[in-house]
């Protein structure tokens, strides 16, 4: 291959020391961010994304309201310091608009929008650090933020990027690998195994596609476990915080009875 870096060396290791099917380290923070109804910070290796969800709420523009369901409005903002080379991208940047449109079309069938007619759900995605797998981080972060906002969804949506280096498939690519290797992003719903999104901007041999597609589906299930663990942890923390005070309430009631 003509690339300077070795994507996969003879020992089977990638440039950052991972094996072929190893995912990068993931951290999830579901703490409250400002006034948002739900928010999540998700990190895949060195890629970090903050997603804030507002709503369902009254839309800003009446013309945007849909009479029988909620309108999902996605705005993506890429911080100028998120890449190695400092670069400011405007709101009208085609590439950023496309990510927003992709997220919107991925979540429209998953969110139960029909429950909230004439309303708007605002999703604000802020990319804090980029190192490959931007779309997967945005989709995973949006899933978590929507769940954190208490918005009804059919299932989680878990996204993973996969690529093929000559004949060997790999998962969760970094920027370095994305530049050299044809790659696919697959978003799937783990309960049913349905696929919410498949997107590819490079050319990939049709024989290789099936394998990488199946692998990405399995990786999605692994991610689902992590995301579910974070959601359950957050829910239990909040339930316990509320529960620890209930004994106080009961005491108060009894005193009032006397």
């Amino acid at each position: 291959m003509g690339s300077r870096v070795e994507i996969l060396n003879e020992g089977g290791y990638r440039s950052d020391g991972r094996r072929q099917f190893e995912l990068r380290d993931i951290t999830i923070n579901l703490a409250q961010q400002g006034q948002a109804d739900g928010s999540a910070i998700i990190t895949h290796g060195l890629t970090q994304v903050l997603v804030s969800v507002f709503g369902p709420r009254e839309g800003k523009l009446r013309s945007q309201a849909i009479h029988d369901r909620a309108n999902i409005n996605v705005e993506v903002n890429v911080a100028a310091f998120s890449t190695g080379e400092r670069r400011r991208r405007g709101r009208g940047d085609k590439r950023i608009l496309e990510i927003g449109a992709t997220i919107k079309s991925t979540f429209e069938p998953v969110v139960q929008t029909a429950l909230y007619p004439r309303t708007q759900i605002d999703v604000y995605v802020t990319v804090l650090q980029q190192d490959g797998g931007l779309l997967q981080a945005c989709i995973n972060g949006t899933t978590l933020a929507l769940i954190n906002a208490g918005i009804p969804m059919l299932d989680f949506v878990c996204a993973v990027t996969g690529g093929v280096h000559s004949t060997s498939p790999m998962l969760d690519l970094t920027t370095l690998e994305e530049n050299d290797v044809p790659h696919v992003t697959v978003a799937m719903m783990p309960k049913t195994g349905k696929v919410a999104l498949v997107t590819m901007e490079t050319r990939l041999h049709v024989d290789r596609f099936e394998e990488i597609f199946r692998l990405a589906g399995e990786a999605g299930k692994v991610l689902h476990r992590e995301m579910k663990g974070a959601v359950m942890g957050r829910t239990s923390t909040l339930v316990n915080a509320m529960g620890s005070q209930q004994s106080v309430d009961k005491d108060g009631d009894e005193q009032m009875m006397e």
Partner: peptide, 22 residues
């Protein structure tokens, strides 16, 4: 074939996510 997580060093210590890693 197994899919697993790399032990990439993480500097963040988030309190909102106390679950142990797999």
């Amino acid at each position: 074939m197994t899919i697993s997580f790399s032990s990439f060093p993480t500097t963040n210590d988030y309190s909102g996510y106390n679950q142990p890693h797999h």
